[in-house]
Design a protein around this nucleic acid. Sequence first.
DNA 1: GAGACGTGGAA
DNA 2: TTTCCAAGTCT
Length: 346
Amino acid sequence: MDFTRQLLLWYQKNKRDLPWRNTTNPYYIWLSEIILQQTRIEQGLPYYLSFTENFPTLKDLATANEDDVLKLWQGLGYYSRARNLHFTAKTIYFDLNNTFPDNYNNIIKLKGIGPYTAAAIASFAYKEPVAVVDGNVFRVLSRFFGIHDDIAIGKNRTVFQNLANELISKKHPDLFNHAIMDFGATVCVPANPKCGQCILNQNCYAFLKNKVNQLPVKNKKITIKNRFFNYLILKKDDKIALQQRTDKDIWQQLYELPLVETLQDNEEDLFEYLSALFPESTIKKITPNAIKHKLSHQQLHISFYEIQVADFDTKHLVVPLNQLDLYAYPIVLWNFLKDFFKLEKN
DNA sequence: GAGACGTGGAA
DNA sequence: TTTCCAAGTCT
């Protein structure tokens, strides 16, 4: 029995019941695919439920404020996904007459949608026989067929895409795509795959050659940069100052406290700087040790300073404490604010 | 096209 | 503790 047929039989018995699989509505499928990019199901599921509840239709999303979309996305990471999601909702609703494109070539034109997501939507919503190629597919195909091309190199993607497009069931492209991803996520997993109970092991190159741990080939090196953030809790009565991140940097469009970024964690220098900036105020360091927060390419060292001010700077947004929860923050900041001000909501 | 972009969980 | 990763895309 061939690869495709085996996989479909496996899926028939082992498929997971997930809310976005019980629909062919492209809006819901699109939503789930964006949320699940680089994200585990357990982490993404609550966000999917929250988005479908708050924005039941594409129109609801298209006519929402970006701040509200980002607030719902808070904590999921890779926030450009949320901004692009909102941008594309507006495109479809206002420019495409509220009609979702119904084929791969038109779907992939949309912002935030690449080859993976376009194939997912085209196959799940419209049964178009285009194969998804995600991390799972790279792993399953490289192991089963013994493909040693480095998956970190972009152009090697075509090797896998072409193979997957040949393998896909023309009759049930949606089931095949779900099957190969589910299989990769639950059986042919990255570490300690369940080869003993794998229904494909009799024909699997990696299993037969004992190379399961060497495939897929992935040589990617990333450099982590240290950054030192000093956040200021500028307080007067029951209000504090906020600002929105806008520049080409992390956390675009999210809100944060007024920030002083330094080249290193030097408490003395910072006190001196803040004393000059706020000569009449007492400055209190809140965090004895900097909070460490790791991003994909940065290690953040975050300190907090509380300063009672006489007046707020006009460049800042002044927000009452009981309305802090209306804004979207990087999760490390929200966790701090929630705890520091003993906020309940969210 | 290589590097950047979040977060939380597992080994 | 450190590293790698999880249904990728953008610039």
